[in-house]
Design a protein around this nucleic acid. Structure first.
Lengths: 137, 137
DNA sequence: TTCTCTGCAAACGCTTTGCACGGAT
DNA sequence: ATCCGTGCAAAGCGTTTGCAGAGAA
């Protein structure tokens, strides 16, 4: 946790207990959790935690570049602490979101003149290997 | 409109007046409208129109492959009648969504074995040419 | 008749806002 | 003393659902 505190501090975020735990929950999983998921995960250990804090903290992380928003399903916003270039695959059967690598440069679209992209995201929706193999959810 | 009626019919959708008009509103613009936008556009001419009808009709079009959902901003769902392969760029300043071409094959990501993508979408968020040129709004 | 479509109103789920308390600076 | 972070409750917004009436087949 000491590491995390220093990491948040150097990004300009005061390392409060809640922020440390929320960052830990986000960075420690590949599940691309939503605010609700993180809230429910931490609640048993931090009974006083409120959803408001989770939402505002995730917004703070996003503003400071520690997390990326993944609006892959129009239902709930998901977050990813991995801000490097990669794609996201959502299984329409089980709902899980997976990372997948993308060929370098393939995400450098030829935008019309004058357009400047700050965020580039590649989304896929389909069926994951587990669900395709017949494991219903 | 005759054309549109036949088009909907051959896709297995009964061409009611509302459906024709909603399809027309969607296909006749490059604005990637939301349900609310279409509703407000048609309301003056179809005063009895309800949001419910717009929502259910757009869902119907999506199910039948006449429209694609674009969850580019996690706020409201946008729709596109152009189902061909292209990218979407959202200007974070003015909120408009633009199409842009993508190099053939660049949207064929190397998914892990067993994964099968049905929908592939490339999203960018940034500043459009007009906003970059200083036109606030 | 029977089935589908439409539309109103209410409900729902995710997220944001207003406000007050408490702790840090 | 001031500022910032937290948390509760309520509101907000996009969307879906329940239900009834109108219309097509």
């Amino acid at each position: 946790m000491k590491r995390t505190a220093a990491f948040l501090a150097e990004k300009g975020i005061r390392p409060s207990y809640q922020r440390l735990r929320i960052y830990g929950a986000l960075a420690g999983t590949k599940e691309h959790p939503s605010a609700e998921t993180i809230y429910r995960e931490l609640l048993p250990e931090i009974p006083s935690l409120s959803r408001t804090t989770v939402y505002s903290t995730l917004a703070l992380f996003t503003r400071h570049g520690l997390a990326v928003q993944i609006p892959i399903d129009g239902e709930e916003m998901r977050y990813d602490a991995d801000t490097s270039e990669h794609g996201h695959f959502r299984c329409s059967s089980c709902g899980r979101v997976f990372d997948f690598p993308i060929a370098k440069g393939s995400l450098a679209p030829e935008l019309p003149a004058g357009f400047k992209a700050e965020i580039v995201q590649l989304f896929c929706v389909g069926t994951c290997a587990a669900c395709a193999a017949g494991e219903e959810e």
